[in-house]
């Protein structure tokens, strides 16, 4: 695959070629002495003994080949070794840990270099799917009475607040927002959906979590003092997602109770679901039963099975 010493030297270094010249020089026997490199010679030139006999040329080539193919074998061996190493590492949430580290590296890079408040493209209401696709009912298999439904909020600033158990009326009292965005499923399909509901950021401002500093929360001006994460789960705990606070406060992250201008249907997550266009659809949890503010990263159903936790777009 390569000349000798290529590990120590840059690929197009002249000294790499000297190794060849040396090899070919000795291969040519004693009769022909290769001339010294020209002073002005670009360093990709090598000395080749033009007077060598055919047999000598073939011998030189064999020597070169042996060396290069040995390097090739080392490279192939390293490749296979690397592959074996990768797939045998201790799993970290469903994938060998080097892959998990890579996903985390990509997340950090994204959060450092992208503008995470960037808005998702919006569409005209007419472009929205008339009958949005239903995909997944994990956490919604149990008997469920929407009338009995309450939204439990944990980690509030005021532990004794009566708001710990909310009804849909509480959510509907927040400013109503409608948006038409594209839901991107991690499976690869996408769909334009017309959502209606309240901004999660408005909800968090109304029902603020306990701050890191212990000061009174100020969601608009001091978001960095809020806990780092928001966790959500279905009433039966069968499906659960974790969101970074930054994405939770994104203006297009909605607590959604309408689709196409009508109340949510049970299979789309009635009475209340999340619509978060800055993440894969897996994060848009249906039938929210609990919202938990926390500084510890909440569990995430799909991230536990090998998927990227952040899943940010």
């Amino acid at each position: 695959m390569s000349e000798e010493r290529n590990e120590e030297q840059p690929p197009h270094d002249a000294s790499g070629n000297d190794a060849i010249a040396e090899a070919t020089g000795t291969a040519g026997g004693t009769e022909h002495v290769a001339s010294a490199p020209r002073e002005d010679a670009p360093h990709t030139e090598i000395n080749i003994d033009a007077a060598a006999s055919d047999a000598e040329v073939e011998a030189q080539m064999r020597r070169l080949s042996r060396r290069s193919f040995l390097w090739g074998a080392v490279a192939v061996g390293t490749g296979f070794g690397g592959w074996r190493w990768l797939v045998t590492r201790r799993p970290d949430d469903g994938i060998p840990w080097p892959f998990r580290r890579a996903l985390q590296f990509n997340e950090e890079l994204g959060r450092d270099f992208f503008k995470t408040t960037r808005l998702a493209p919006t569409f005209a209401p007419a472009q929205a799917a008339a009958i949005p696709r239903v995909n997944g009912a994990i956490g919604m298999e149990d008997e469920f009475d929407p009338k009995e439904w309450r939204l439990n909020v944990e980690g509030l600033a005021d532990e004794e607040a009566p708001e710990k158990e909310l009804t849909l009326a509480h959510i509907k009292s927040l400013p109503r927002v409608e948006m038409v965005t594209e839901l991107k499923c991690i499976e690869g399909w996408s769909m334009i959906v017309r959502w209606g509901g309240a901004r999660l950021s408005d909800f968090i401002a109304k029902y603020p979590p306990a701050t890191r500093s212990g000061d009174a929360p100020d969601v608009r001006r001091k978001p960095e003092d809020l806990p780092g994460f928001v966790g959500m789960a279905t009433p039966d705990g069968g499906y659960y997602v974790g969101l970074d606070m930054e994405s939770a406060l994104h203006p297009q992250t909605l607590l959604c109770y309408e689709m196409n201008g009508k109340p949510l249907t049970p299979e789309h997550g009635a009475p209340l679901r999340l619509a978060i266009p800055v993440k894969y659809g897996t994060k848009s949890i249906k039938r929210i039963g609990v919202i938990r503010f926390s500084d510890r990263r909440p569990a995430d159903y799909w991230a536990e099975q090998g998927y990227d936790y952040y899943s940010g777009h």
Partner: peptide, 11 residues
């Protein structure tokens, strides 16, 4: 006919 030693262009 054997030529005098010369350099071959690498590229």
């Amino acid at each position: 006919a054997p030529q005098p030693t010369r350099t071959a262009k690498a590229s």
